[in-house]
């Protein structure tokens, strides 16, 4: 179901667990994810593999693209309509572009704080025209470039006020072209309209509902639902378009197909798993990135557990006529 306009409201049936992808040594320390027609591209960072891992929906390992010869501290991944792969490098202040086979096309970007220069670029997002927003983290701003690196726009500056940032990280653009920014060290999410004007700020520091501890990423689905990966609280929080807190995801992982295959091939692992506290295996550990697709599948990069947890929203879209008008006070009596 692809929606072009946001429904008036939703009947939320639930958000059942859909599936798990990946495992240690395949999707070790996943930091971002992107989708091709058939392939799933998972950007991983760290000692066990700094590269893009390619999987399919059967969780089969189809190899890697890129690697440390192209980027050192990869942070953000974008996949365009031709499945070209864009990777930001926080160590070298640049954007690396490869084709779907991993062949290097172009690298652009230079270090600095002037307009169009970068200081530890992290998350990436396309705007509606296909230009690229880059979270220019240590310059405390979001910049927009054409795909081949021409500077277009800059939003924000260092600070704690509206429209200001302290080390912004994850960004995304909704179907109407609004920009959402996980304002990492300010423990909040901010929204900007298509022209870059501040719209709202969501959240504050803490661990209560609606509060964040170092949020790393934000994404918005076609219902206007906002998902925030609240990394230090090991959860993802969901808010509706009116910024009302809906629910949190703490992890419900099942075994990924490759994980299951692994365990079945290892008699000792099978035994140890049966001796251990099984419940722990489900939980999220430092979710670093969150994405949704047009089918309302929610992808949580369960960084500390080297896997991707996927949920799928079950909801009925409502028109204004289907639901009673908003009420000012609660009611005990219902029929």
């Amino acid at each position: 179901m692809t929606t072009t306009s946001i429904p008036y409201d939703l009947l939320r049936s639930g958000f059942p667990y859909y599936m798990t992808l990946g495992q240690r040594r395949v999707t070790t320390a996943p930091v971002d994810i992107g989708f091709g027609k058939e392939n799933i591209y998972v950007l991983t960072k760290g000692g066990l593999g700094t590269q893009i891992r390619v999987l399919n929906w059967e969780d089969e390992n189809l190899g890697v693209r890129g690697g440390t010869d192209l980027f050192q501290w990869p942070a953000g991944l974008l996949v365009d309509e031709e499945e070209n792969l864009y990777v930001s490098d926080e160590a070298k202040d640049c954007l690396v572009i490869m084709n779907k086979d991993g062949e290097h096309i172009q690298t652009w970007g230079e270090s600095g704080s002037d307009e169009g220069q970068l200081n530890r670029p992290s998350s990436l997002a396309f705007d509606l025209e296909g230009n690229i927003f880059i979270s220019d983290t240590m310059n405390h701003r979001i910049q927009k470039f054409t795909r081949d690196g021409k500077f277009l726009q800059s939003i924000g500056e260092m600070g704690t006020g509206d429209g200001q940032f302290d080390m912004p990280w994850g960004i995304s653009v909704d179907q109407l072209g609004n920009l959402y920014v996980a304002d990492w060290r300010n423990d909040r999410v901010q929204k900007f309209d298509e022209s870059g004007n501040f719209v709202f700020s969501l959240g504050s520091s803490g661990s209560e509902k609606g509060q964040f501890k170092r949020p790393t990423a934000v994404t918005v689905d076609n219902h206007g639902d906002i998902y925030v990966s609240d990394a230090e609280n090991d959860r993802v929080q969901l808010f509706n378009k009116d910024l009302k807190y809906i629910q949190s995801f703490h992890g419900n992982a099942t075994l990924s197909p490759s994980g299951q295959q692994y365990i079945l091939a290892n008699a000792v692992t099978l035994r140890l798993r049966s001796m251990a506290d099984f419940e722990k295996t489900q939980r999220l550990d430092a979710p670093m990135m969150v994405k949704v697709d047009d089918e309302f599948r929610l992808f949580i990069l369960d960084y500390g557990n080297h896997r991707i947890q996927i949920y799928k929203k079950d909801a009925v879209e409502l028109s204004k006529e289907q639901i009673a008008p908003e009420m000012r006070n609660p009611i005990l009596f219902t029929t």
Partner: peptide, 11 residues
Amino acid sequence: RRIADNGSGTD
């Protein structure tokens, strides 16, 4: 390494 493979490698 292990006699049986684990799908993408061996242990």
